[in-house]
Nucleic acid binder design. Structure first.
Lengths: 221, 221
DNA sequence: CTAGTTTTCAAACCATCGTTTCAAACGAAC
DNA sequence: GTTCGTTTGAAACGATGGTTTGAAAACTAG
């Protein structure tokens, strides 16, 4: 009845690591189970034995990383609300709670690093039915938790406008997360994609200004 | 020696239309030549006969639409520079020249519509080697033309910050272009993705505020 | 009309895909 | 050591992928 305690977990991890890198590089359809298991140094049947299917493997690959990130987001948000008591929270802080944990993940090479960021950005931009549903499943709670806090931080902004702006925020996040090196190439080394804290600062400054902007139909909140 | 003048162009167009829709919906790897040609109502060999390969078909699909959009972007930018003479151009106008043509394309159902926007957003978010190169090939000129105008519109913003912010702008564009219906679903119908001019207004307002924001290291331009 | 080219078609080719099978190897419990 | 559930391995399955082939069909030119 006892399970083998060492080897199975190693193969699971090896498969997840290889899947993370290959899904990020080639996309869901572009990465093959054969290449994944080959890179992981295990038999192809082991992947289906441990995860059931390719789609389930992708799901496991995402969950392994997104879980902790989302937990830290919620923790930061709790902290913000605790500190500001009844007063209205600063948009900058809320944005940072949303943006920073994901971006910081990119520096922790032991926990996924650039590969997973690329993967996340790719999944976000994928209009495929299944990946779309997977997205909502992984981020639905975050959306429901952050939305009202944003609304309290910007009480004069109509809900429609707020939704659009959060949509824009997600676009900036996804695009910045999806690519860590292209900008360095384009800017000929001027922009450093490894300066995570610098990027967080810049994103928060940019996004906060956008969130607080006066909106087409009228008043400035 | 003479070419059949009517039918071949119809098949080419049918293939391009089907490819546009399927590449957008399923991605490059996810869309099959068989499905594309089947949807187009032509034989599968016709695609390889007219375009040579799947990759060349994608390239043709992109070129057909991007050309006119980029031309209008440059036209609008010329117009802006002509009107403001030596004075510094308004960031809002420059942003609109960059953003509006692509977004307006989505309303012209005869010229591609939502399918192509989805496709473009997808290509942008794709970290694959070939698609990345294809992207730079199609948008390199636009970047080189817009960059200095943005710099003149925001003279006090250091070039590094400007590059990052343009990077953010591209993220918002790509994400908004890539998805026309998801937001409607999430917002339970509150946000209308078909209100193109409204979206342009909102994006320009949001992005202009972000571009003009004070930056971390110091002064507000 | 005929000759010659361009375009279409059904079929086949060969590779690769995700998944399954089933027997061998393994590890812990008795 | 024997037993039993867990994990791995090589091979095969059925399906689908992009691409090619060679002949029929459609067209233009003379």
């Amino acid at each position: 009845m006892g399970a083998a305690t060492k080897s199975p977990e190693k193969t699971r991890k090896a498969i997840l690591d290889a899947a993370e890198r290959l899904f990020a590089d080639k996309g869901f359809e572009g990465a093959s189970m054969r290449r994944i298991t080959s890179d992981a140094g295990v038999n192809i049947a082991a992947a289906n034995y441990h995860f059931g299917s390719k789609e389930a493997l992708l799901k496991a690959t995402l969950s392994r990383r997104i879980g902790p990130v989302n937990e830290e987001r919620l923790r930061l948000l709790d902290e913000i609300e605790a500190r500001c008591g009844g007063r209205r929270p600063a948009v900058e802080k809320v944005l940072e709670a949303l943006v920073a944990p994901a971006l910081r993940l990119s520096r922790d090479r032991r926990r996924g690093g650039p590969a997973f960021m690329k993967l996340l950005g790719r999944i976000f931009a994928d209009p495929g039915d299944k990946l779309q549903a997977l997205c909502l499943e992984q981020f639905g709670d975050i959306g429901r938790r952050f939305m009202p806090v944003f609304q309290r931080a910007l009480p004069k902004l109509p809900p429609v406008e707020l939704m659009w702006r959060i949509h824009f925020v997600i676009g900036v996040m996804a695009h910045t997360m999806a690519d860590t090196q292209k900008l360095k190439h384009i800017s000929r080394g001027v922009c450093d994609p490894d300066d995570t804290e610098g990027i967080v600062e810049r994103m928060v400054a940019f996004l906060a200004a956008g969130m607080k902007a006066s909106f087409p139909k009228g008043e400035t909140p």
